[in-house]
């Protein structure tokens, strides 16, 4: 379960969840969605989170992505407990620690590839020169170094997702959080994107947490966390 080929870094817990709970309150009704989740994810792991709809997958993703806060239990991100953080502090943590990848890419159609990749770095207030350089480097890493000045509508779906992955890597986050990254792609492109993920995983020891319901991907993950009815099974 531990990353096998991690030479540079000691084994580090990137995510630790302790009896994590999330309950929604709808008027007088209590709806428990996550019912005490214990989970650790280490650096360099490629993790799949799977489960049918209604299993609490999305809620789990939102909490891991610091877009939502749990109602019980503890969440340690890169060794730091996330608790009672202000909205600003959460935004800063998201910016520094998490690289989001979405099913529908969520690229800004009006910005160039370069500007899209720069977006998280803009919020990290990196100087323009540094951003430019880093964006070029990342675009090259995902194989689209020649597309920097293009706009998303001039790219294929697979290329868009590559750009989104490059964007997620901008601030060297602790881990990538991908939500159905191949859900909008055909099978062949899907395979290419998964290759990119496994490539990042193997060559750069990037920690990746991927939420998916595609059972075909199971074999690619180091470890799969199955969620059912708010619990890990």
């Amino acid at each position: 379960m531990y990353p096998q080929n991690n030479k540079d870094n000691a084994v580090r817990e990137i995510i630790r969840l302790e009896r994590l709970e999330k309950t929604y309150y709808l008027e007088s009704l209590e709806v428990p969605v996550l019912k005490g989740i214990d989970l650790s994810i280490y650096n360099g792991e490629l993790i799949g989170i799977m489960g049918v709809s209604g299993s609490g997958k999305s809620t789990m993703l939102n909490i891991l992505g610091l877009l939502d806060v749990p109602t019980g239990g503890r969440y340690f991100l890169d060794g730091q407990e996330v608790r009672n953080f202000s909205d600003n502090a959460l935004a800063q943590l998201r910016n520094a620690k998490i690289g989001f990848i979405f099913q529908s890419f969520n690229l800004s159609p009006h910005l160039t590839v370069e500007q899209n990749i720069e977006m998280p770095m803009v919020y990290a207030e990196s100087p323009k020169k540094v951003r430019r350089e880093r964006a070029r480097e990342l675009a090259e890493r995902v194989g689209l170094g020649h597309r920097l000045k293009h706009r998303p509508r001039e790219l294929s779906g697979g290329e868009c997702q590559r750009i989104a992955i490059a964007r997620a890597l901008g601030n060297s986050p602790a881990y990538l959080l991908a939500d159905e990254p191949t859900g909008n792609l055909d099978e062949k492109t899907s395979d290419e994107i998964m290759e990119l993920f496994t490539g990042l995983h193997q060559e750069h020891h990037t920690t990746i947490v991927m939420v998916t319901h595609n059972p075909d991907l199971e074999s690619l993950f180091d470890r799969v966390i199955h969620l059912r009815d708010g619990r890990v099974v």
Partner: peptide
């Protein structure tokens, strides 16, 4: 809204 959500996920603060 989608752009706003994406920016927020990428680390934009409310004030940004």
């Amino acid at each position: 809204r989608k752009e706003i959500g994406t920016r927020r996920a990428m680390g934009a603060k409310k004030k940004d």
